[in-house]
């Protein structure tokens, strides 16, 4: 289980490895730790979208380590970097949907086109594969054909989709979906929402309302509020995560589109600054292209040279 999970993350990161972290592996040869080494390391971390702040903090920590532990060789620093990277991710790690309850409500949010609807379809399959009864709520009543899109996925996975007419009130859809989930003894309800930029006041208010409807209907719901982030996103991911977290209490992140050459380095800043766990990564457009996130596998995958 752990191994297949690791392998799948590793696969999706194979190109990352070759481009950037492959270079890191090269950088961490038997050579001495020089000023140039630190500069190259900084460069490579930033190229992975890890961001200036996190990179600077990492390097400062490693420099200290190097002095304190008398690390002279680059390969020693590498081991320490891996530890530190894993530490960042593990400090915020948390099990997805922990605990038992009758109905688990999962709300998904994110900016336009980040991968919400596709991730929901994948999650539906994930739960179904675990023997749970799943229902979907088409809370994106705004974008053209968004409801159709979710319905097609619902058909493919074999789960029911509760939807209204286009332009309907997303809060009402959520209300209906919760009632339907209850009366039909569902285990998990996953709610889709319209993509929205976190800078749009009215749209964020609307999202709060949707969140509030779930909160009122089910004890402690939503039990997870997932922010779906596009792995190709740069520094703006942090701003997205901050604002969405403030508005609807994000509980975790899904990192979609990690099958490209994108490095997904923003995961570190988000884990570090916002203490949000990364639950899943999206590794393709197909329904099975979802992997549970595992900090060791993620970082291991980054460093394995080929």
């Amino acid at each position: 289980m752990v191994f297949s999970r690791a392998a799948s993350i590793r696969d999706s990161l194979s190109r990352t490895r070759r481009s950037v972290f492959g270079q890191i592996a090269g950088l961490f040869g038997p050579g001495e730790v020089t000023e140039e080494f630190w500069e190259d390391l900084e460069e490579l971390l930033i190229m992975a979208d890890i961001g200036v702040d996190t990179t600077t903090a990492l390097i400062a920590g490693l420099r200290e380590d190097a002095v304190q532990r008398g690390m002279r060789r680059a390969e020693q620093v590498r081991g320490r970097l891996e530890e530190r990277l894993v530490d960042i991710l593990e400090a915020s790690a948390r099990p997805y949907l922990e605990g038992k309850r009758h109905l688990s409500v999962v709300l998904t949010v994110g900016v336009n086109g980040s991968g919400k609807t596709t991730s929901i379809a994948k999650l539906a399959k994930y739960h179904k594969d675990r023997g749970q009864r799943v229902m979907l709520a088409a809370g994106d009543t705004f974008r053209a054909a968004a409801i159709d899109q979710l319905k097609i996925w619902g058909d493919r996975v074999g789960v029911e989709v509760i939807a209204s007419q286009p332009g309907g009130d997303p809060g009402a859809v959520v209300y209906d979906a919760i009632r339907a989930s209850r009366s039909r003894g569902m285990d998990v309800l996953i709610i889709d929402t319209a993509g929205r930029l976190h800078t749009k006041y009215n749209l964020m208010q609307e999202l709060k309302k949707v969140h509030g409807v779930a909160q009122k209907q089910v004890h402690r719901a939503p039990h997870e509020t997932l922010l779906v982030l596009d792995a190709t996103t740069g520094q703006n991911a942090l701003s997205q995560a901050k604002v969405f977290k403030e508005a609807v209490k994000i509980t975790g992140v899904v990192l979609a589109k990690l099958d490209g050459t994108a490095k997904g380095g923003m995961a570190f800043a988000i884990a570090r600054d916002l203490e949000l766990p990364i639950y899943f990564v999206g590794t393709g457009e197909k329904i099975e292209d979802l992997a549970e996130f595992d900090a060791h596998a993620f970082v291991d995958g980054l460093f394995e040279g080929d």
């Binding site: 190229m47 979208d49 900016v111 190709t232 996103t233 994108a262």
Partner: peptide, 12 residues
């Protein structure tokens, strides 16, 4: 192209 794209923009 999405204005939020990070370092990846170059490869794309």
């Amino acid at each position: 192209a999405d204005a939020m794209t990070g370092q990846e923009a170059v490869n794309v």
